[in-house]
Nucleic acid binder design. Structure first.
Length: 243
DNA sequence: ATACATGTTGGAGC
DNA sequence: GGCTCCAACATGTA
């Protein structure tokens, strides 16, 4: 479910509920659900992998983590985390983290760090990267404060596109590759969104879960790299290491 | 059927 | 106090 582009699609799917009033709320989430009854959805926003449902006096923040799912006007048998019921229709969330955000969103989130936001600011990303020369690129891409919305799939595909080995250090990348890194973080996310919308994401994977490099037919390595030891796929032949 | 996976956090331990 | 590391969460799929 997660990764920024998937959240964009959730947002789109929830659009019909904007302006609608919550008449009941259920589920096993421990947040006090009473306070949102009778509140209207003012807007649906997102920051990276955070889904933000803005109500009259508070925002609901939903994070799907690894296994989160949701259903609109449908239910399934697994434990319900949060349901929002309207006069007509309902939204059901499962296996996700639910929180309230009391502050105005602009105070909580820097939307220019979100690779899919209209206000995405590549120059700010570059400034942040400059401060972490020792960091490996595979870790830098997953840093939500720099590339909000980028997840493990996007990480692997971006590095393959720009032909950079995941264990390269940010400080050792030539400037043109820093530019390419930042540019492709957004570009690939846009492609991801386009493909996911058409249920055609998987068939466009070039390295993620792959065994053979589509460029030079060499073997794709799978290793658990970076601080978080996430699955990393790469080709030693075409992806250059800047150690 | 056992292991693994698109992710983050909170607390233990140093 | 602050840093790092890892368990915990939890479900669908191969």
């Amino acid at each position: 479910m997660p990764e920024g582009p998937s959240i964009q699609l959730v947002k789109e799917n929830l659009l019909p509920f904007v302006g609608k009033k919550i008449i009941a709320a259920g589920g096993n989430s421990k947040i006090g659900k009473d306070r949102i009854i009778n509140q209207k959805i003012q807007s649906i926003q997102s920051w990276g992998k955070h889904l933000l449902i803005c109500l009259d006096s508070v925002t609901l923040r939903i994070h799907f983590l690894m296994f989160g799912t949701y259903l609109i006007n449908e239910r399934k048998s697994t434990p319900l985390r949060l349901s929002l019921r309207f006069k007509k229709g309902e939204v059901n969330f499962y296996t996700c983290s639910v929180q309230y955000i009391e502050e105005p969103l602009q105070e909580v989130y820097d939307f220019s760090a979100d690779v899919l936001n209209d206000s995405w600011d590549p120059r700010k990303a570059r400034q942040k990267l400059k401060k972490i020369p020792e960091t490996k690129v595979c870790d830098a891409l997953l840093d939500q404060q720099t590339f909000s919305g980028v997840g493990n799939i996007i990480k692997n595909e971006v590095l393959f596109r720009i032909k950079v080995h995941p264990e390269s250090r940010i400080g050792k990348l030539p400037p043109r590759l820093i530019s390419a890194l930042i540019k492709e973080a957004r570009n690939y996310s846009l492609d991801f969104l386009k493909w996911k919308r058409n249920f055609a994401l998987k068939k466009h994977y070039l390295v993620y879960t792959k065994k053979i490099c589509p460029r030079d037919k060499d073997h794709i390595h799978k290793e658990y790299l970076g601080i978080t030891k996430r699955r990393t796929f790469f080709c030693n032949t075409c992806q250059v290491l800047y150690p």
